[in-house]
Computed example of a mutant assay.
Amino acid sequence: MRDSGVQPDIISFASILLACSQFTALEQGREIHSYISNHKLESSEVIMGALLDMYAKCGAVEEARHVFYRLQVRDIVSWTSMIMATIIRFIYI
């Protein structure tokens, strides 16, 4: 997208993070998170939810927890993601 001059928006990033979570592509998700941070997009609840979901599904509990504590609103979806992250970690230990 960037090579063709199109700037990704919040929905683009949420979709990319969803793909990372489905393929457990943690390193790529971290790269996207870095880009998001550098471009000051972390104020979006959509982005933060997508980051939390990606880290949780990739088993990165500490990173998921960091995102979780930065959420403005912790709802049933974010709590479920954190619980899932913890369970995934214990399954793979």
Rank of each mutant, 00 (worst) to 15 (best):
G49P: 06
T86Q: 03
R30K: 15
V46H: 05
L41P: 02
G5E: 10
M54C: 04
E31V: 09
M1V: 04
S15C: 10
T24A: 14
Q7D: 07
M1H: 07
D3F: 10
A14N: 07
I83N: 08
Y35G: 02
Q28V: 07
V61A: 14
F90M: 11
S4I: 15
Q22W: 03
V73F: 12
S81Y: 06
M82E: 02
G29I: 01
T86P: 00
M1Y: 12
I93E: 13
C20E: 02
V67G: 06
I11L: 13
S15W: 03
A50N: 13
R2N: 10
T80M: 11
M1G: 14
K40F: 15
M54G: 06
A60E: 04
D53C: 06
G59K: 03
I87S: 09
A64K: 04
V77E: 15
I76M: 09
V77H: 07
P8N: 15
I11H: 07
R74M: 00
I88K: 10
A25M: 03
E62R: 10
V73D: 15
M1E: 15
S12P: 02
V61Q: 14
S44H: 08
D53K: 07
E42D: 13
E62L: 13
H33I: 08
T80V: 03
I83E: 05
I76T: 11
E27L: 07
Q7M: 01
I83C: 01
S21K: 10
Q28G: 03
D53R: 07
I93N: 09
I87L: 10
L18N: 08
T24L: 14
G59S: 11
H66I: 14
L17W: 08
R65F: 14
S12C: 13
E63C: 08
E63I: 01
H66A: 15
I87N: 13
G49D: 14
G49A: 12
H66R: 15
I83S: 12
S21M: 04
R2F: 01
G5A: 08
T24D: 08
K57D: 09
D53G: 10
I76W: 04
S12Q: 02
L18V: 01
H66V: 15
V77N: 14
R70D: 12
L17V: 01
G49M: 10
Q28F: 07
S21G: 01
L41W: 12
D9C: 07
S15L: 00
I93F: 12
S78T: 11
Q7F: 02
E63K: 12
I88A: 02
I32D: 00
R70K: 14
I83G: 01
D53I: 00
L41R: 11
L52V: 03
S81A: 14
